[in-house]
Design a protein around this nucleic acid. Structure first.
Lengths: 351, 351
DNA sequence: GTTAGCACTCATTAAAGAGGAGTGCTAACA
DNA sequence: TGTTAGCACTCCTCTTTAATGAGTGCTAAC
C-alpha cells in the first residue's frame, strides 16, 4: 500500500518533530505547525491510518505518536533528502593531518562525538589482500636477532628471535636473501608448505630461524586480532533519556569497552560495502548487526585510503538521531580522508 | 584523640556491615550481631562519639550511620588486617602466559574486573630510564628506508624515511655504524646537540637522514604518548547504586574512555611507588589523584618486570569496596607477574 | 557505665485525586 | 466524499495526604 503525498507530509512532520523533542507528538501540533491547513481531526484520521500501516505507534492510549523502526526507515530512504539543508549551520570537521595514523583516527573519533553528540567509533584501516613486501633480519646481540617484516600498506611487524648459535654477517645476509627471494610479493595464501620446506633445506642448520620467521610472517599478514578500533563519546548516550537507564546504558558501554561488538559492526559494514554506492549504511533499531544496539541506530561509512586500505567509521546514537546531519558529517569526513591520504601517495604515514 | 578498643570494634562492625549491604547501619543491628553484648542504647552513645570524631556520618537524621572517608581510611590502615581471612573462598586469578604482552594485560584487566566486580585498568610496562640499544637502517625501495630503533626493554620503533637519492649498501652500512657508535647506550638526556652536529658533519650529504633518524629516536625513547592502558569492566559501576546515577556514571565512563585521567593515576602511583613497601596504594574518595573519582575508591599496585619495566594496576569501585579482597587480589597478581616474567629473563616477550 | 523507655524525625511508600494531553468516534457541513 | 467541530473517554503525570517504620537523642533509673 502506497502512502499518499499528504500522508508522507504528515509522517515527515511527525518524525521531524519527534527528532527535535523526543516526546510523542499529537495531532494538534501537526495541524498547527504545518502548512497543510488541516484540522487536528483530519490529522488524527491520517495518523490512525499511518499507525495501522506500521509507520508510527503510540506508547500508550491517549499519548501522541512516535515513529516506529519502519517509520524511521521510510524517512531515511525517502523523506530525508527533502529536508531543507542548513549547510551553513553545520560545522565542518577538519582533519588535522598528524604523522601518526593512530592520532588522526583518535582525533576523528573525538571530533565526531563532540560534533554530533552521539558516540563515535572508527576502525584503523586494514589491508584486505596483504602481501609481503620486505623482510630484514638483523643481529641484536650474540644470541638474538630481530626480524622486521613489512607488508603492503607499510604495516610493520617486529619479532625478536632467540638463536642457539651466533650467526655471522654472511649467514644473516644469506638468510635475508633466501627469505626475500622466496617470499616477497606473496600473500599468505600463496605461501605454500612446499616453499617453506625448500627454504628450510637451503637454510641447513638454520632452519629453526626460518620457522620462527615464517610464524612471525603469518601473524603480521593476517593481523586479524589487531583490528584496532578507536572510540569516543560513549558517555553521550547519557544525553538521551531513552538510552540512559541502567540496563541499556550498561549494555552499550560494555559494547564500547570490549570492542568485540564494534568489530562485528566493522566486518558487517565492510562486507556490505558495495551495496550502497556512497558507502554509507544506516541500521535502525532491530536492523543493527549486533543485538546490544537494538535500541539505537547505527550509521556507518566506509573509507578507503590508497593501496586498498579500508576502514569503517560509525556513529551510534538513539533511534531519533539526526540522520541527515550524521550522514552529511560522515560523507564530509570520508571525502576528506580520501583527499588527504589518496593524493600524497608516498607520504611517510606509518602505524 | 584515641579510639577506645570498644569504639574500634563498633567502627569495624559498622564498616563491615555497610560494605556488605550498602545501607546505613543502625545501632540495633550492631547490638544484635556483635559479641559485645551491649544494648542498642549504649551503641548509640558510642556512635554519637564516633560521629563527632568524624569516622562515621548520617545521610540524614533518623537514618543509620555510614562510614566517612576518614572512617574508611582508619579501616584500611588499622582494622583491615584483623578481618578473618577466608582465603579458600577467594578465587585465584591465574595469568595465562601469552606471547604478546598486550594480550596478557588485557586478560589481566578482564579477570580482575570479572573477579572483583569493580572496574579494572592496567598500564603497559614502561621503562623508566630508556637507553638506546640498537639502530638499523635498511633500504626498502629506491627512495625509502626503514629505521628500526630498539631501546632497552626491547621496545621497538619503526620509522619510514623518504630519501632524496638512492643510498647504496656501502653508504647505508656507514650510516649504521655512525649512528650506532655515537648513540648506543645513551639515554635521551645524554644525546647532546653537539653529538648530533658531529654526526651530521660526518654524514655529509646524508645529514638529512641523520636528522630524521634522530627525530625518530627521540620519539621512541620518550614513548610518552603511548602509555597504553587497558581497561575492563567499566560497566561494573552500574552494580552500585551510589555510582550509577547519570552524572556520576557519565563522569567515570568518560574517564575510562579517554584514559587521560587513568594515566594521571598511573603517573601518580609510579611516583609514589616507594612510599609503601608493598607497592599497594589505596585512595579513598577525595584522596583520589583525579577529581572525577571523588565518589570512588581507587586501589593501585605497581608491578615490576625485569630490566626495570614498571606498570600500574588499578581497581576502581565504590568507596564501600571490599578493600581486603582487592588488596589481596592485587598482591596475588603482581607476585604472579613477577614470578612469570622475572625468571625467564630471556623469553621472547615483545610488545 | 549501662540500659529501658519514649518522643521525635524523616525517608519511603501507597493511595487518592486533580489536571491535562491526546485520542476515537459521531454527526454535521461543504 | 472529504473535512471538521464537539464530546466522551483514556491514561499518564503530578501533587497531596497519610501511614509506616527505621532509627535517633535524651532522660531517668538501675
Amino acid at each position: 500500500m502506497e502512502l499518499s503525498s499528504r500522508q508522507e507530509t504528515i509522517l515527515l512532520a511527525i518524525i521531524k518533530t519527534y527528532l527535535d523533542t523526543g516526546e510523542p507528538v499529537g495531532s494538534r501540533t501537526i495541524s498547527k505547525y504545518t502548512d497543510l491547513n488541516l484540522s487536528s481531526a483530519t490529522i488524527r484520521n491520517e495518523m490512525a491510518d499511518l499507525e495501522e500501516m506500521g509507520y508510527i505507534m503510540q506508547p500508550h492510549t491517549s499519548a501522541g505518536r512516535i515513529p516506529s523502526d519502519k517509520g524511521y526507515r521510510f524517512y531515511v530512504d525517502h523523506l530525508m533528502a527533502d529536508k531543507e539543508k542548513e549547510v551553513d549551520e553545520m560545522k565542518e570537521i577538519l582533519i588535522e593531518k598528524a604523522d601518526k595514523m593512530e592520532q588522526v583516527l583518535k582525533q576523528i573519533a573525538k571530533s565526531l562525538s563532540v560534533n554530533t553528540n552521539y558516540a563515535a567509533m572508527i576502525s584503523a584501516p586494514r589491508y584486505h589482500q596483504n602481501k609481503l613486501k620486505f623482510i630484514q633480519l638483523s643481529r641484536m646481540g650474540d644470541d638474538q636477532i630481530v626480524a622486521v617484516i613489512v607488508v603492503e600498506g607499510n604495516i610493520i611487524k617486529n619479532e625478536i628471535i632467540d638463536v642457539q648459535q651466533y650467526l655471522d654477517d654472511e649467514t644473516l645476509l644469506k638468510l635475508n636473501i633466501l627469505l626475500n627471494t622466496h617470499l616477497n610479493g606473496l600473500s599468505i595464501e600463496e605461501i605454500s608448505l612446499a616453499a617453506i620446506q625448500k627454504m628450510k633445506e637451503q637454510a641447513g642448520i638454520h632452519s629453526e630461524v626460518i620457522s620462527d620467521v615464517i610464524d612471525a610472517v603469518g601473524e603480521a599478514i593476517k593481523a586479524d586480532e589487531d583490528l584496532e578500533i578507536y572510540t569516543s563519546g560513549a558517555n553521550n548516550i547519557f544525553k538521551y533519556p531513552e538510552l540512559s537507564d541502567h540496563e541499556k546504558a550498561s549494555e552499550i558501554i560494555t559494547a564500547f569497552e570490549e570492542k568485540k561488538q564494534l568489530s562485528d559492526i566493522v566486518y558487517e559494514t565492510l562486507s556490505n560495502q558495495d551495496v550502497d554506492s556512497t558507502g554509507i549504511q544506516v541500521y535502525i533499531g532491530e536492523e543493527s548487526p549486533v543485538h546490544n544496539m537494538k535500541d539505537c541506530s547505527v550509521v556507518t561509512a566506509t573509507y578507503e585510503l590508497d593501496e586498498g586500505m579500508r576502514g569503517t567509521i560509525g556513529i551510534i546514537g538513539p533511534k531519533r538521531m539526526d540522520y541527515d546531519k550524521v550522514v552529511k558529517t560522515l560523507k564530509s569526513i570520508t571525502s576528506q580522508l580520501d583527499s588527504i591520504y589518496k593524493k600524497d601517495h608516498k607520504g611517510n604515514r606509518k602505524r
